[in-house]
């Protein structure tokens, strides 16, 4: 009885009795969720357009962040004295590098393997992961680096707001992350729904052979989606590294995005976003209110648990349509 009480009632009593703490937990969950959503978005973009599960998505986040910091250091060394100027020049150059990466992946990995089974392409992205790790270490060294937060005008500090008789802390960087992520998602949404390229992307996602028949070039589309998910990776990398630092350990956040994909579906952009937020919030709530009960280590499996419980009730995922096979 005691255990049941602790699991099913006590946490909610705690939530009710200290709403400020609850609010703080929810906010932190949302902020974490935004980053999960971004990583899942990177996966979904590539999967939708090419059917490739890109294992390298996590390392692309690290690679983008490393390139940004590395280029900044280089620019400073060659005499760009204004730190802000150097930072934004480095940002622009990193975007160019991500475009180069997208083109290289299309030419060297996707094109030679076209028409191969999906599992081969999946394995190829494994290979890509190790190439990027190797390249990153070779060029930038393996030791962790500090994100150039100030130089990019990303805010520091926090607001402590008095709510529900307690204080809730909102880190400025978290607010900035949420705003930037929303802007980027909105930008992508407009791009997909309103432009010719966006329409071509949706067309490819729906039917390769129909897309080919109207003269859409799959190669061009692949470059564009890899570039788009490279940009998403860059933003994710900056935001994530702003609170810790830039290191290869970051790439495991890709594994954190897997439950988001299970929940939201591999082909749904709204699924990635809402799924990311649900997992983020669920994880923080679970850690804070149920964590002590179960001992430590809850954060390594909780996200999967949430996704699986959700699927029990909604097997088609968040936004998926019920699939009824025609027989």
């Amino acid at each position: 009885m005691d255990l049941l009480y602790k699991i099913f009632l006590d946490p909610f009593v705690q939530m009710g009795s200290a709403p400020d703490l609850l609010l703080q937990t929810l906010w932190e969950g949302l902020v974490g969720g935004v980053l999960y959503a971004l990583i899942a978005l990177g996966f979904v973009l590539i999967f939708k357009a090419s059917g490739v599960f890109n294992f390298a998505q996590g390392i692309m986040v690290v690679f983008a962040a490393l390139t940004l910091v590395g280029l900044f250091a280089l620019l400073t060394r060659v005499g760009v004295s204004n730190a802000h100027l150097a930072a934004f020049a480095a940002l622009g150059l990193t975007v160019v590098v991500m475009l180069g990466l997208a083109i290289a992946v299309e030419k060297l990995v996707l094109r030679p393997l076209v028409n191969q089974p999906d599992i081969i392409l999946f394995m190829a992205t494994f290979g890509l992961t190790y190439v990027l790790i190797g390249l990153g270490e070779l060029i930038f060294g393996g030791e962790p680096k500090v994100m150039i937060t100030n130089e990019l005008f990303l805010p520091r500090g926090a607001w402590d707001l008095e709510i529900f008789g307690g204080f809730v802390t909102f880190q400025h960087i978290d607010i900035a992350a949420a705003i930037i992520a929303s802007l980027m998602v909105a930008g992508l949404a407009v791009f997909f729904s309103k432009t010719r390229i966006g329409r071509a992307l949706r067309a490819v996602a729906d039917s390769h052979k129909a897309a080919l028949s109207v003269g859409i070039s799959l190669e061009q589309i692949w470059v564009i989606v890899w570039f788009a998910s490279g940009l998403v990776a860059l933003v994710t990398g900056i935001m994530w590294a702003a609170r810790s630092d830039v290191s290869f350990a970051l790439q495991i956040i890709a594994l954190r995005a897997l439950p988001v994909l299970i929940l939201g579906g591999f082909t749904s952009i709204p699924g990635a976003i809402v799924g990311g937020l649900i997992i983020g919030v669920g994880e923080k709530l679970g850690e804070f209110y149920w964590g002590p009960l179960l001992g430590g280590g809850i954060e390594s499996w909780l996200a999967y648990f949430i996704a699986l419980v959700f699927l029990l009730f909604r097997p088609q995922g968040l936004f998926g349509e019920k699939i009824i096979e025609r027989v």
Binding site: R199, R202, A203, D206, S207, K209, A210, A211
Partner: peptide, 13 residues
Amino acid sequence: ARTFQNVALFRGM
């Protein structure tokens, strides 16, 4: 230009 024996449309569009 062509059409297909088993309709190939962009179904979500």
